[in-house]
Write a protein that binds this DNA or RNA. Structure first.
Length: 258
RNA sequence: CUAGUAAUUC
């Protein structure tokens, strides 16, 4: 029974609603977690009508069912419906709150989101992180920086959010600054962080730095470069006119650079 | 066992 639920989840993660539904039908016994897993699967595939159907037919609901339904509604822009579920829930968990908050932010409703955020007492790291990244993505740099400085604690996701958003907006220097600040906060960068760093270097035209960061990533942090790192670096070198270097980098890639 | 955050370049 437990492994069935896990299998439904696995298919859901791959966006394979059909196989998830097959496992669901094949499972002899179903508990609340089974139904929730199926609800998640349909929600991830973006099938709101089906999610509603499953939800309405459930004999009982728990925090996970409600939270999943909140996510399903916000994915389709139905913020009012999502909010209604949140208000009606007997217990409003922090995760449910964050799901609703993210729904507002995903739909670019920054002002209502901020009001929501300020009104709710239990704000965990995830909700802070999403607030910071959403405001930065919208170009509200000072506000996002202020949120970042105000939050009770920062982790890799918080710092990486700043680095990558700055890098993509073309604020290369600010991105690198944020990256360097991580070391002072004793936050370890990860593979995603370095993707942002490479993008920043590309904007700054810093060829030598790209190699330095790549080496540091491998040696200091033990991060093995992925295909994403290589493609990011190759196109950065290419755009900076370093065609030879770009070719050499392609040769270095583990999986055939054909 | 099942629910909410960062990234994959232009």
């Amino acid at each position: 029974l437990i492994s069935w639920n896990t299998m439904i989840q696995a298919y859901a993660d791959h966006g394979d609603l059909e196989n998830a539904a097959m496992v669901f039908k094949a499972s002899r016994e179903k508990n609340l977690a089974t139904l929730n897993a199926m609800l998640v699967a349909s929600s991830k595939s973006g099938n709101l009508e089906e999610s509603k159907g499953i939800f309405d037919q459930m004999p009982e609901w728990d925090v996970i069912s409600w939270t999943t339904m909140i996510t399903a509604y916000t994915q389709h822009g139905h913020l009012d419906a999502a909010r209604r579920i949140f208000v009606k829930m007997p217990v409003q968990s922090t995760i449910s709150f964050t799901a609703l908050l993210c729904g507002f932010l995903d739909n670019f409703e920054l002002i209502p989101a901020k009001a929501l955020f300020e009104r709710f007492p239990e704000r965990d790291l995830v909700s802070w992180n999403r607030m910071v990244s959403a405001y930065a993505q919208a170009g509200h740099i000072p506000l996002s920086k202020k949120l970042f400085d105000t939050m009770p604690e920062r982790d890799v996701v918080s710092c990486t959010a700043l680095v990558t958003v700055y890098a993509h907006l073309g604020y290369g220097l600010t991105a690198i600054e944020s990256f360097q600040t991580m070391a002072m906060d004793a936050v370890h960068p990860n593979d995603v962080t370095f993707l942002g760093v490479f993008v920043a270097c590309a904007h700054l035209g810093q060829v030598a730095e790209i190699y330095a960061y790549l080496a540091s990533m491998e040696i200091d942090y033990g991060i093995v470069p992925t295909q994403d790192h290589y493609s990011c670096i190759v196109s950065a070198l290419g755009r900076l006119g370093q065609l030879k270097a770009a070719m050499e980098m392609i040769q270095r890639m583990p999986t055939a650079g054909t």
